[in-house]
Nucleic acid binder design. Structure first.
Lengths: 222, 222
DNA sequence: GACTGTGAAGCCATTCACAGCT
DNA sequence: AGCTGTGAATGGCTTCACAGTC
């Protein structure tokens, strides 16, 4: 549950799950815009994102009355509103720490740039990687991180180093005045309260699938 | 909520969130084993994974009594039990479709191989990529998928193609007799009911962070 | 004495069902 | 007539608090 500070939307509580769905809706709306669709109703957003229609309406209604009763929602207007709610009506500077396979893939990921995330730099400790280019992005030595942050402030740090280095990297990011961290390392990292951390675990999803497959086709272990 | 078929664990319902946490616990336990720790109590598992201690105990208790009252849990024994619950006491064959940056990174991701996931092959449509090697893994043309599946059955398909090709790929995977799909494309894909699909959205997590940052530092749009 | 296992309570999120508009 | 917005009902998950066991 996320509590709002009194302000733009009054004092209000919104489930975190709602924000996650808003992100899904916005991507669906983007696709509708590309197709030239101008109106949409909640049931379509629902089936396009795998959600219940009442849920879609409730999620949107937390932030205002964006629809027209009896009609639906104007796609472009709703899209603009949702993007603003998500804080995506501006550019965000992102730094990736760890230029392994995953770090490189995320640095080049079009899904980020297309939504206003600017990868400002990629850092690594491995001498053989430093100086290499990822398109027009150079891999920098991690010793330059604080210097870089001074000259090029960034808001988000993405951690893609092995688990045992994750806390060290987090500490460095804190010193770099980062505001939020996306952590792909499978460990809990400690940071000051005012910094938001979101852990992404890539294997968790696969393992949920193997659990379910195991149920259907149990291999009894004696 | 996941319902169990009558069998190994009786007829029982377990929250999906429990399975996701079991996956986190198992990784934490793995780290304890590497450190040579033999006993652990729920409060330690809790702080090591960012969860409440009662929750840890309840999650484990769905599947049996693995602990000793007054003492705690034997790390190795608990680890083995959790891995078995997750269906990770065997190898799973995985195929990745889409050899872009993300597909390549996932194919080489050590976090998968270290947990018993064997990447059996990587497929793509791009002629310039086909035949390239990712370590000892060759990129194959997608036209060979069904053939490949005949000779080398696999359980899981990972979709890392652009959104507009995702459904086509899913259809092919269904024909390949896949049992579960991990979908990184930001669209809902339709498959028969008996095939489990899990959608992973990489931008959702970043956007939850920007939402929260926007709350703290609102940029009012007039 | 200490920690697990668990019923009960509390809390949060989703879904229903219909009033309110256009 | 049709679809949104929303209070009320439901359902599910998490946390509490303590009985049970070593």
């Amino acid at each position: 549950m996320i509590s709002f500070p009194p302000g733009e939307y009054g004092t209000l509580k919104v489930p975190e799950a709602t924000i996650i769905r808003l992100s899904l809706y916005s991507r669906f709306l983007q696709q509708l815009i590309e197709k030239g669709v101008t109106m949409v109703m909640s049931a379509e957003i629902a089936s396009g994102t795998g959600v219940n229609a009442a849920q879609v309406r409730k999620d949107l209604a937390y932030f205002g009355e964006f629809g027209l009763r009896g009609v639906g929602y104007y796609v472009k207007e709703l899209y603009r509103n949702v993007m603003t709610i998500l804080g995506l009506n501006r550019e965000w500077n992102v730094v990736v720490i760890g230029a392994g396979n995953l770090g490189q893939a995320l640095s080049l990921y079009r899904g980020f740039s297309s939504r206003g995330f600017k990868i400002a730099a990629v850092f690594d400790t491995d001498d053989s990687k430093i100086g290499q280019k990822l398109h027009d992005l150079e891999i920098l030595p991690i010793s330059k991180l604080l210097d870089f942050a001074d000259k090029n402030p960034f808001e988000v740090g993405v951690i893609t180093v092995p688990a045992k280095f994750a806390q060290k990297v987090a500490d460095l990011l804190v010193l770099s005045k980062v505001k939020a961290i996306l952590n792909f390392a499978p460990v809990v990292i400690a940071v000051p309260d005012e910094i938001d951390v979101r852990n992404v675990d890539l294997t968790v999803n696969l393992e949920l699938l193997t659990f379910k497959m195991g149920l259907k086709n149990p291999q009894h272990t004696p």
